[in-house]
Amino acid sequence: MTQANPSVPALHTYNPNAPLSSFDNPEILDGQDQALLSPQQFKNLIAAKQARLAQAKAGETSKLAGGCIIGAYWSTCKQYPGFGQINLATELRSDHHEYATQQRWIYGSGMWETYMDISRDGGANWYGRKRLVINSTSWGAFEYDGSPNVARGCLHNMATHYVGCTGWH
Rank of each mutant, 00 (worst) to 15 (best):
I69V: 15
I134G: 00
E113I: 02
W112E: 00
K63L: 14
D24R: 11
W105M: 03
E98T: 14
P81Y: 10
R131M: 05
P39S: 03
I118E: 14
D117N: 10
L37I: 04
Q34S: 09
N125C: 01
P39I: 06
A124L: 11
K43T: 15
G31C: 09
W74N: 14
Y115W: 00
Q34A: 06
A48S: 09
S109N: 08
A89Q: 14
S119F: 04
A58F: 04
Q79E: 14
Q79H: 11
N25I: 01
S138A: 15
N25E: 06
W126K: 06
E91R: 15
G110M: 09
Q41S: 14
G108C: 10
Y144K: 08
A35D: 11
D117I: 08
D24E: 15
T114H: 05
Q41M: 08
A47C: 09
K43Q: 14
S62I: 08
F83Y: 13
D24W: 07
T90C: 06
W74K: 09
P26A: 04
A72L: 08
T61H: 13
K57H: 10
I118H: 00
Q55F: 02
A141V: 02
I28W: 04
Y73W: 15
S94I: 01
I106A: 12
S94T: 12
G110V: 03
H97L: 12
I86H: 08
A54F: 05
D121L: 10
K63G: 00
K57R: 15
C77I: 04
Y107C: 01
L53W: 03
K49W: 15
Q103P: 05
P148N: 12
E113P: 00
E27T: 09
E91P: 01
A89Y: 03
L45W: 07
G67Q: 05
Y80E: 13
L45D: 07
E143A: 08
A48V: 02
W105T: 09
L45K: 15
L53N: 04
T101G: 15
L53I: 13
T76C: 02
L36V: 10
S75Q: 02
F142E: 03
G110R: 12
A56N: 03
E143L: 03
Q41I: 02
A72T: 07
E60K: 07
Q34P: 01
N149I: 06
G122W: 03
L88W: 02
H96D: 10
G140S: 13
I106N: 14
N25L: 03
S147I: 09
A58N: 15
G82P: 11
R93K: 08
K78T: 07
S75C: 12
N44A: 13
S109I: 06
T101C: 12
I86C: 06
T90Q: 10
